[in-house]
Each structure stands twice: as structure tokens, then as C-alpha cells.
């Protein structure tokens, strides 16, 4: 039997959740035995090459590219996991949600003291910024949520192994934290 396939992505995140995944230490060797990685920054595969069993996404959606990427993940993954505070509620990028988008852009590209040529970027090649940062589950269906900033390595490990083995999830109290 072939191994379950895992894909990961970082949208509007900081890659901290991916770092936390690496924080499972030597269990990473067990993980490599358990699963095969497809599209992921871990192995640098850029496009889906086969159907994926588990998709893990960190970061929320702040621009059109994030949304496209997320929809592609939903199409290709049987199970989609929202990993970390940003994926679940928008996180740090969502701190702009109370500020109108024009004000944000003007502050960053026109009024900021370190800006030289005062232009708001508007090239078709640059993804369009969204009106606010969206949690993943507001755009596609999400099957599981793993909170934390970053989610503790133990939480990721427990969740992944429970999912792979079909056993009930047993999270230690110390592993579930929101910060």
C-alpha cells in the first residue's frame, strides 16, 4: 500500500507553523516513514502531481493569490487542516482588518517616511490585496483546526498521527495553546 500523501502551504503566514512542524525533532524520521510529501515548501514541489490525503495550511488569506492557492488545495486534498492562529482567525495580518484598505496602502506606499517613489503598486502581476484578511474557513471548508502561534510541535504530531492511524485524538493540556 502506498503511503498517505501530505501537502503543505504557507499563505499569509510567517512560516512559523512550518518551523514548528520541524520542531517534532527526531520524530521527523518517523514522519518520513509514515507519509510522502507532495506540493510543499519542505520539498519544494511547486505543483500538485497526485491526489493528496492531508493538506496543511498556515496563514490566512490576504490577497488573491492566497485565495487561488487555497481553492487549489481544497480541490486536491481529501482533508484540509487549518494550522495556526493566522489560518484560523487571520492572526497578525488581520490587525489591519479595522483599517480601510486605502488607508493601509497610503500609509505603506505614500505617507511612510522611508518611501522614495510614492506609488501604490498596481501591476497586473502583483496579486490583488483583499479588503481584509480572511480566515481559511470563511473561503473553503476546513476539516480540522490546530490553534497556536505556533501550534506546539506535540499538537501537530498528535493530530497527524491520530489522523493517520485513525485513533482518537488525545491532546495533552500543555500542547493546546493559543500563543
Amino acid at each position: 500500500m502506498s503511503k498517505p500523501v501530505v501537502a503543505t502551504a504557507s499563505l499569509a503566514g510567517c512560516f512559523g507553523c512550518h518551523m514548528s512542524l520541524l520542531d517534532i525533532d527526531d520524530r521527523i524520521l518517523q514522519l518520513i516513514d509514515l507519509v510522502e510529501f507532495n506540493k510543499s515548501p519542505v520539498d519544494d514541489i511547486k505543483k500538485f502531481t497526485k491526489p493528496v490525503d492531508i493538506g496543511i495550511i498556515e496563514g490566512g488569506c490576504c490577497n488573491s493569490e492566497n485565495v487561488e492557492n487555497l481553492i487549489e488545495f481544497r480541490k486536491n486534498c481529501k482533508i484540509l487542516i487549518s494550522l495556526g492562529e493566522c489560518a484560523i482567525m487571520g492572526g497578525l495580518p488581520a490587525m489591519r482588518n479595522g483599517i480601510p484598505i486605502r488607508e493601509c496602502l497610503e500609509e505603506a506606499y505614500l505617507n511612510c517616511v522611508t518611501v522614495d517613489d510614492k506609488i501604490i503598486p498596481n501591476d497586473p502581476e502583483i496579486p490583488m490585496i483583499l479588503d481584509r484578511v480572511y480566515p481559511l474557513h470563511e473561503i473553503v471548508k476546513i476539516d480540522y483546526y490546530l490553534p497556536g502561534c505556533p501550534p506546539r510541535a506535540d499538537l501537530i504530531w498528535e493530530a497527524l498521527t491520530a489522523l493517520l492511524s485513525g485513533k482518537p485524538l488525545n491532546i495533552p493540556y500543555e500542547a493546546l495553546k493559543y500563543d
Partner: peptide, 26 residues
């Protein structure tokens, strides 16, 4: 707007602690 990662009270917050107690994921 409860942004636990940026909050100074995180870890000592009763609302957050209740979230932990009830195993609130999202």
C-alpha cells in the same frame, strides 16, 4: 479582537484558559 499571540495577558487570561479547558480549536 482577541489576538492571543500579541496579548500580554496570554497565559494568565481566564477567557483563554476556558478555551483550553473546553478544548476549543476554532
Amino acid at each position: 479582537n482577541h489576538m492571543c499571540p500579541t496579548c500580554e495577558k496570554s497565559g494568565n487570561c481566564e477567557l483563554q484558559a476556558l478555551g483550553y479547558r473546553y478544548g476549543l480549536m476554532a
